[in-house]
Computed example of a mutant assay.
Amino acid sequence: MLPDWLIGLIMGMVEGLTEFLPVSSTGHLILTADLINFGGPRSTVFEVVIQLGSILAVVVVFWKRLWSVVGIKTSGYKKTKLNLIHIIIGAIPAGLAGVVFHDFIKNVLFSSRNVVIGLVAGGILLIVAERFAKEPKSTNLDQISYTQAFLIGCFQVLALWPGFSRSGSTIAGGLLLGLNRKTAAEFTFILAVPMMIGASGVDLIKSWNVLSSSDLTLFITGFITAFIVALLAIVFFLKLLEKVKLTPFAIYRFIIAIVFTLVYLV
Score class of each variant (00 low, 15 high):
44 T>N: 06
67 W>N: 10
29 L>Q: 14
31 L>V: 12
33 A>C: 08
25 S>Q: 15
68 S>T: 11
17 L>P: 09
141 L>T: 14
56 L>Y: 11
198 G>H: 13
51 Q>G: 10
155 F>E: 07
260 F>P: 03
247 T>V: 15
185 A>M: 01
68 S>I: 03
98 G>A: 06
21 L>W: 10
163 G>D: 02
61 V>T: 07
176 L>G: 03
5 W>C: 03
160 L>V: 10
54 S>D: 14
225 T>A: 10
29 L>A: 10
232 L>E: 00
120 V>I: 15
186 E>W: 00
12 G>R: 09
194 P>D: 14
253 R>C: 10
17 L>Q: 02
223 F>Q: 03
63 W>P: 04
45 V>P: 04
121 A>S: 15
36 I>P: 11
163 G>W: 04
19 E>K: 11
165 S>H: 03
198 G>C: 12
28 H>R: 10
234 I>M: 08
259 V>F: 08
30 I>Y: 10
45 V>K: 08
149 A>N: 06
218 L>R: 02
34 D>P: 03
241 L>V: 03
112 S>Y: 13
117 I>T: 05
197 I>R: 06
198 G>V: 13
180 N>K: 02
85 I>D: 00
12 G>I: 08
207 S>A: 14
158 L>N: 00
143 Q>L: 08
157 V>W: 05
87 I>V: 15
226 A>N: 07
56 L>A: 14
113 R>P: 00
152 I>L: 12
232 L>G: 00
153 G>Q: 01
253 R>I: 08
84 L>F: 15
68 S>G: 13
14 V>M: 04
136 P>G: 02
30 I>D: 06
76 G>W: 02
79 K>P: 04
209 N>Y: 10
46 F>P: 05
59 V>W: 09
163 G>A: 05
1 M>N: 12
252 Y>V: 11
24 S>F: 13
46 F>H: 11
216 L>A: 14
135 E>N: 13
141 L>S: 10
125 L>Q: 12
178 G>M: 09
114 N>Y: 04
223 F>H: 02
204 L>R: 08
91 A>S: 15
122 G>T: 05
169 S>W: 13
1 M>R: 13
150 F>V: 11
245 K>P: 00
265 L>H: 05
102 H>L: 04
222 G>C: 03
98 G>L: 07
125 L>M: 11
148 Q>V: 13
79 K>A: 13
213 S>C: 00
185 A>P: 01
139 T>W: 01
211 L>K: 08
157 V>Y: 03
134 K>Q: 14
143 Q>E: 15
154 C>E: 01
